[in-house]
């Protein structure tokens, strides 16, 4: 464990960047995911098509390629560092999965809820915001939790583009100490520090909402 002591600031910096990237990506992917989920259930054919193409593109391309696309191609036009490129890629990639999850959630809300709201005078947007989405998110919560945990783990993509995250710092420590096994165990524990409380919190939230209903 002297490895941990000697490199603690390095690991801590990586932990910070991983946490920061995860939080940013979580917020962006929730917004984008919800937006594209709604696009897909609109009656307009063009909106459905846009939503569908977006989801299919970002869901079916490896995250690494999306990341390199931003890091190596987009960066030529809009300068961005590895952290930004990786976080954007992570947001888009995750948003495709969240869009599918939220869409499934919306579809499992009884159609009568929308009719009731529209007949009551609410606009489509108001019906979505106040009636459909709150119920859809509740239904989608378990799989959203899975997406969040995947997101945290997938943030290790930053390591490939010098994003200074936990995995990157782990690689650097492993390369200088040559103690690969111990290094990655330390890295794994740091990931658990984020993911375990997250899954515990999601389970708790699920339980609370179930009781509320």
């Amino acid at each position: 464990m002297s490895l941990l002591q000697n490199n603690f600031p390095t690991f801590l910096q990586g932990f910070g960047y991983t946490l920061l990237s995860s939080i940013i990506a979580l917020i962006i992917s929730m917004i984008l995911g919800t937006f594209f989920a709604i696009l897909q259930i609109l009656p307009q054919k063009w909106a459905q098509k846009i939503g569908n193409v977006y989801v299919q593109v970002f869901r079916n391309i490896p995250l690494l390629i999306i990341t390199f696309f931003f890091f190596l191609v987009v960066a030529k036009v809009i300068p961005m560092n590895g952290f930004a490129a990786g976080t954007i890629a992570l947001s888009l990639y995750t948003s495709a999965f969240i869009a599918e999850t939220v869409r499934a959630g919306i579809l499992s809300v009884d159609n009568g809820q929308m009719e009731g709201a529209r007949a009551n005078g609410l606009s489509f947007g108001q019906s979505m915001r106040y009636i459909i989405l709150p119920q859809a998110f509740k239904i989608a919560l378990p799989s959203l939790g899975n997406q969040f945990i995947n997101l945290v783990k997938n943030s290790s993509i930053l390591a490939f583009v010098g994003g200074l995250d936990l995995m990157y710092q782990g690689n650097m420590v492993a390369a200088t100490t040559f103690d690969t096994f111990t290094t990655y165990i330390v890295v794994a524990i740091f990931y658990l520090v984020i993911t375990l409380p997250l899954s515990y919190y999601m389970q708790n939230l699920e339980r609370r909402l179930k009781h509320a209903a």
Binding site: F68, F71, L72, A75, K76, A159, F160, V161, G162, N171
Partner: peptide, 16 residues
């Protein structure tokens, strides 16, 4: 720090 030389060269060209 990148994973391999090919990526390093690409990153150099991309202005990273």
């Amino acid at each position: 720090a990148v994973q391999d030389y090919a990526t390093g060269m690409q990153a150099l060209k991309a202005g990273q």
